[in-house]
Simulated scan of single mutants.
Amino acid sequence: MESTKPLPPIAGRGAPTNLRPTRTGSAERVADGDWLDAADDIDGAPPPLRTTVSVEHPKTIIARNSSPDIGFDRSINPYRGCEHGCIYCFARPTHAFHDLSPGLDFESKLFAKPDAAKLLRAELAKRNYKVAPIAIGTNTDGYQPIEREWGITRQIVEVLAETRHPLLITTKSDRLLRDIDLLAQMAADNLVGVAISVTTLDPKVARTLEPRAPHPRRRLAAIRALVDAGVPTQVNISPIIPAITDHEIEAIMAVAAKAGAIRASYILMRLPFEVAPLFRAWLAAHYPDRADKVMHMVQDIRGGRDNDPNFFTRMKGQGVWPQLIRQRMKRAAREHGMDKSFPPLRSDLFQPPERDGQMELFRT
């Protein structure tokens, strides 16, 4: 019989379970309540969960999308999976396509793409390449902890800086300050924009929501450092979670404005596919007193379901609560002078890299 007992949280991890991908036909892993009660007595405590990194060799590195509610049509993901462990991450289901769990596997069994910069250079060198901003960090964070050793995102930014190609970065890590030399160089030509995600200012909440992401204070300090270097930077209050973080909107806007952010954006929490049961398990472990209230509000926003996959409404939600959030964001933006437009990035400065070792003379 399936246990209804809440799963205990795992220190340093977001998901409390390793939910199996049900869409691929694999059997779901179900924890038996009687076994859970006796597991420690029989087996002892489980070994610590370690992060592993496997090498992936894709044939191309630029991912394309035609979504009408996203402001870019191409992106690069240097890594698959993300050690930040954000329980709300809408990218978790991508691990299911590899018969891995969107739960603990997503944040502990990672994939790196060391050929990314080489592949990017080859794609930018194609005669029919059309320039438009490339986004990094829209699926999994390019500046997650393993970037420290692998440096793949840095290599990608080096190629984009060299070719004077426009770039958009979204991250919740101050690790991107290591690349501030390149970002400042690109910003001087209006080639880069950065969004720093701040979900909460409460370190206790952050430790459970996004356990391996940098402290909120470090992200705010990154905004200040980027702005001081001339890099246009906005704060991204994402996601806003009803009855968990929504009360912090004005406070986040105020400290982000003080740090120099030129504007603010937000996204209401989305729970696609396997993210919904993982989030429910997280609620049961950390907020049992309000779990039902949170999910009732989520379903009210999403037309009675855990998730709304439809374009436009998936980002904005439906009903009174999303309308109130929009009003609060607009009012706070006006109050703090964060209602400016993000500077449009230039595409006319692009200089294609050499193709197959040939000089520019032989391109025509």
Results as ranks from 00 to 15, higher is better:
59 K>W: 14
119 L>P: 13
50 R>Y: 10
147 E>N: 13
283 L>A: 07
263 R>K: 04
112 A>H: 03
156 I>Q: 00
76 I>H: 02
223 I>C: 11
309 P>I: 02
96 A>K: 05
101 S>A: 02
230 G>L: 04
63 A>G: 00
165 H>A: 03
242 P>T: 14
234 Q>C: 07
132 A>W: 03
235 V>I: 02
118 K>A: 10
190 N>Y: 06
343 P>R: 04
127 R>H: 14
94 T>I: 04
73 D>S: 13
57 H>T: 11
78 P>H: 07
9 P>V: 10
247 H>D: 05
20 R>K: 11
96 A>Y: 06
60 T>H: 07
295 M>Q: 12
353 P>A: 10
132 A>Q: 09
12 G>P: 09
107 E>Y: 10
182 L>T: 01
117 A>E: 14
237 I>A: 14
268 L>A: 01
20 R>F: 08
181 D>H: 08
291 A>W: 03
115 D>N: 11
24 T>P: 12
27 A>Q: 12
46 P>K: 12
251 A>I: 00
341 S>F: 14
141 D>L: 02
346 R>E: 07
121 R>M: 01
244 I>V: 15
234 Q>L: 13
67 S>K: 08
147 E>M: 09
199 T>Q: 10
216 P>K: 09
172 K>T: 00
276 A>R: 01
360 E>Y: 05
82 C>H: 10
14 G>I: 05
346 R>A: 08
219 R>I: 09
243 A>V: 04
228 D>G: 11
220 L>N: 03
217 R>Y: 11
110 L>W: 12
82 C>K: 05
225 A>W: 04
65 N>A: 14
286 H>R: 07
198 V>K: 01
152 I>A: 05
138 T>L: 15
24 T>A: 14
118 K>N: 03
333 A>P: 01
329 M>D: 01
344 P>S: 06
178 R>W: 06
289 D>T: 09
339 D>V: 05
276 A>K: 04
51 T>G: 00
232 P>I: 08
33 G>Q: 12
114 P>W: 06
7 L>Y: 12
218 R>V: 10
309 P>H: 07
307 N>Y: 15
148 R>P: 06
9 P>T: 15
30 V>A: 05
72 F>M: 09
194 V>L: 02
176 L>S: 04
149 E>V: 06
283 L>M: 08
231 V>Q: 12
81 G>L: 11
326 R>M: 12
354 E>I: 13
99 D>F: 10
112 A>L: 07
43 D>R: 06
233 T>L: 08
295 M>I: 07
298 V>E: 05
289 D>N: 11
325 I>R: 00
170 T>H: 03
303 G>F: 10
36 L>A: 13
222 A>N: 15
151 G>C: 08
275 V>E: 09
5 K>F: 11
225 A>F: 09
170 T>C: 08
75 S>K: 03
38 A>L: 15
221 A>S: 11
312 F>E: 08
205 V>N: 13
14 G>D: 09
288 P>Y: 12
119 L>G: 13
193 G>E: 00
256 A>N: 00
253 M>H: 02
230 G>F: 10
351 Q>H: 01
103 G>C: 10
28 E>A: 13
313 T>I: 06
125 A>C: 08
159 V>S: 03
265 S>I: 01
279 F>P: 02
288 P>L: 13
10 I>H: 04
118 K>C: 12
311 F>T: 06
57 H>E: 08
195 A>F: 02
73 D>C: 13
263 R>T: 05
220 L>D: 04
106 F>L: 03
167 L>Q: 13
339 D>H: 04
105 D>R: 07
296 H>L: 15
52 T>S: 15
